[in-house]
C-alpha cells in the first residue's frame, strides 16, 4: 500500500528564486556581522566611559570610534555590492518608510558617522590635537556626555535593526521571530567586547569588558534557547523552520560553530580567567568573533530557503 502524498510541480524557474530562494549571500552576512559589531563597540565604549566618569587614556579605547567607522564603512561597502541596481543607491535617502527596517537602518547609518567623529575628536591623543581642530574638539568635549548617551541609543538601534530586518519578514518563516532583534543586538555586544579585548587596553578596562562579555554570551545562549523554543512549540510552519537546526541540514554547523565554539567554549574560558585569574589568551575573543559571523551566515543562508511554498 502506498501512503497518501501531495506533490506540487511548478514551471517557474526564476534565477535566485527557484528551486530555493537564495537572494542574499556573503555580502549581507558580512554586513550584518559588522553592523552588530560596530553597534557593540559604540555601546560598550560609551558605557565604560559613563561608568568611569572620564575618558579612557588607553590607545585602544581612544581609537574605537575610528575603528568602528572603518568597520562600518567596510560593511556598507559589502551592502552596496549586494545591491542589484547600484546606480540607484541614493534612493535610500530620498524617502523614509517607517514600515521598512531597512529604511530605518539606512538613516541610522547616516547618524553614526558624525557621532563617531565627534566621539573620536572629544578624546584625541595630545599629538593629534592640531590647532585647526581646536573648535570642533572644544564642542565635542562640551557635548561629551550627551554624545555618550547618544552612542548607547544609536548602538542599540543599529544592533536591533540588523536582527529585525530579517525578523519582520514573515514570508521567511525561520527568520520571522522578534527574538532575532535582541539576539543580533546581544551577539553584536558580545563580538564588540571580543574585538575590544584584542586591542591595547588598561588592565581594569580589560577586567570589566571580560565580565560584560560573559553576561552578553550567557544572554545570547538564553535568547537562542528562546528562539528554538519558539520553533518547537509553534505552528507546523514554525516547526518546519526550526527543524533545520534540530536534526536537519544545518544542525551540525549551527551547534558546533555557533553554540559550542562561539558561545560555550568562550564562556568557559572567560569564567576560568575571571575565577582562577588565568591570563586571557587571544583565542577566546577570536572564537567569539567566529561564532558571531557563523550565526549571521547560518541564519541568513538557512532562513531564506524557508517559505510558504514548503507547506501544503
Amino acid at each position: 500500500m502506498t501512503s497518501p502524498f501531495h506533490e506540487s510541480v511548478t514551471t517557474r524557474l526564476n534565477h535566485a528564486i527557484d528551486p530555493a530562494l537564495h537572494i542574499w549571500g556573503w555580502e549581507i552576512t558580512v554586513y550584518l556581522f559588522l553592523g552588530g559589531l560596530v553597534a557593540g563597540l559604540f555601546i560598550l565604549s560609551a558605557l565604560l566611559e559613563l561608568q568611569r566618569g572620564k575618558p579612557s587614556t588607553s590607545s585602544g579605547m581612544r581609537s574605537v570610534p575610528i575603528l568602528a567607522l572603518v568597520l562600518l564603512s567596510l560593511g556598507m561597502g559589502t551592502l552596496f555590492l549586494d545591491l542589484d541596481y547600484k546606480a540607484h543607491v541614493f534612493r535610500f535617502y530620498m524617502a523614509f518608510r517607517p514600515s521598512s527596517p531597512m529604511s530605518w537602518g539606512a538613516w541610522i547609518l547616516l547618524l553614526v558617522y558624525p557621532a563617531g567623529l565627534l566621539l573620536w575628536l572629544g578624546n584625541l591623543p595630545a599629538a593629534l590635537q592640531l590647532p585647526v581642530l581646536a573648535r570642533p574638539i572644544a564642542a565635542a568635549q562640551r557635548w561629551r556626555r550627551r554624545l555618550l548617551w547618544l552612542s548607547v541609543v544609536m548602538g542599540v538601534g543599529l544592533g536591533l535593526y540588523t536582527g529585525l530586518l530579517l525578523g519582520t519578514l514573515s514570508a521567511r518563516i525561520q527568520w520571522n521571530s522578534a527574538v532575532l532583534g535582541p539576539l543580533f543586538l546581544t551577539s553584536g555586544i558580545s563580538t564588540g567586547a571580543a574585538l575590544l579585548l584584542l586591542l591595547p587596553l588598561h588592565a581594569d578596562e580589560r577586567k570589566t569588558l571580560i565580565r560584560w562579555d560573559m553576561v552578553a554570551i550567557a544572554t545570547e545562549l538564553l535568547l537562542l534557547a528562546l528562539l528554538l523554543i519558539g520553533y518547537v512549540t509553534g505552528s507546523s510552519a514554525a516547526r518546519m523552520a526550526g527543524a533545520v537546526f534540530l536534526g536537519g541540514a544545518w544542525t551540525a554547523s549551527f551547534w558546533s560553530l555557533v553554540v559550542v565554539l562561539g558561545l560555550c567554549v568562550p564562556l568557559a574560558m572567560g569564567l576560568l580567567e575571571v575565577r582562577k585569574h588565568l591570563p586571557l589568551i587571544a583565542l577566546t575573543p577570536v572564537l567569539v568573533l567566529i561564532g558571531g559571523l557563523s550565526l549571521r551566515a547560518i541564519l541568513l543562508a538557512s532562513g531564506q530557503e524557508t517559505g510558504f511554498r514548503l507547506l501544503p
Binding site: 527557484d18 537572494i23 545591491l83 541596481y85 540607484h88 534612493r91 530586518l165 514570508a171 511554498r309
Partner: peptide, 15 residues
Amino acid sequence: ACTGCKACIASCPYD
C-alpha cells in the same frame, strides 16, 4: 526608485 536591495523578494510569501 528600486535599488535592487531585494527586501521585497524576501518578504513575498508567494515568491
